[in-house]
């Protein structure tokens, strides 16, 4: 999920009310032949920001770095616990003949993800000719990804987490005292999906709905968020 994932935040906010996580999948089981299935971890897109009193979110580099490390730890623990091998996606050399295709497959994944959010997660907007099926694919060219990473599946993760700045916390107090109006603090939300690298099928897509909870700045809390993101992944 690359730059275009930014627009997902808008969609997710508009389309997904409620809280907790919402998940769709084509299967409950990973394909397990003789060996453990191998999952390629695509570079997770994680951003932790500070929300100012004025309402802007400002990216925080130190928090983001910590969250990436915490998530990596929690993710590996989870995959080990379900008996899956994993390998990290290593971006190819710019000069490599596959560089453009590998890159575009990731962009296509973001576009397909957006279609899933818009036309599957929102029941009123579902496409009638699809007959309610959760059926989305990146196509067989994902074989290039499988070949590149020697893996059976690819896991994509997008996560946004924000926290009220000291000024915003002060504002929350002032607003509550003066006019009794609640001012929202930070918000956590995320998306992840699993793609079958033989067929291109999106076998699972999960949305962690926006919530004013969770804290990716600590390992313990990151484990909880990671659990919410991944516990319904096919095993």
């Amino acid at each position: 999920m690359r730059r275009t994932a930014g627009t997902l935040i808008v969609l997710a906010a508009v389309l997904l009310g409620g809280c907790g996580a919402q998940s769709y999948r084509t299967t409950e089981r990973l394909v397990r032949t003789d060996a453990q299935p191998c999952i390629m971890l695509m570079p997770p897109d994680i951003e932790l920001s500070e929300r100012t009193a004025g309402g802007t979110t400002e990216l925080n580099a130190a928090w983001t770095k910590a969250a990436e490390a915490h998530f990596a730890t929690a993710l590996r623990e989870h995959l080990t616990s379900i008996g899956a091998d994993f390998v990290e996606y290593l971006p190819p050399d710019d000069a490599s003949p596959d560089a453009q295709l590998l890159d575009e497959l990731q962009s296509l994944h973001a576009t397909v993800g957006q279609a899933i959010l818009e036309y599957h997660f929102e029941p009123a907007l579902r496409l009638p000719a699809k007959k309610g099926q959760f059926d989305w694919s990146l196509g067989p060219e994902v074989a290039k990804l499988a070949e590149h990473g020697k893996a059976d599946y690819a896991l994509f993760v997008w996560l946004r987490d924000s926290y009220a700045s000291p000024a915003r916390m002060a504002l929350q107090v002032v607003a509550a005292l003066v006019v009794g109006v609640p001012v929202s603090g930070g918000v956590q939300q995320g998306l992840c999906s699993l793609v079958d690298l033989k067929t291109g099928q999106v076998v699972w897509f999960n949305a962690l709905l926006p919530r004013e909870a969770g804290d990716m700045r600590t390992l313990e809390e990151s484990r909880a968020t990671t659990h919410l993101l991944l516990d319904r992944m096919p095993k």
Binding site: T111, V112, Q114, A115, E118, Y119, L127, P128, A129, K130, W136
Partner: peptide, 19 residues
């Protein structure tokens, strides 16, 4: 197909207009 009128045109899609 899935059909949606837009402006003065008819648009059809199977998996979403961006696909």
């Amino acid at each position: 197909w899935n059909w949606r009128p837009f402006d003065i045109v008819h648009t059809w899609t199977l998996d979403g207009p961006n696909l």
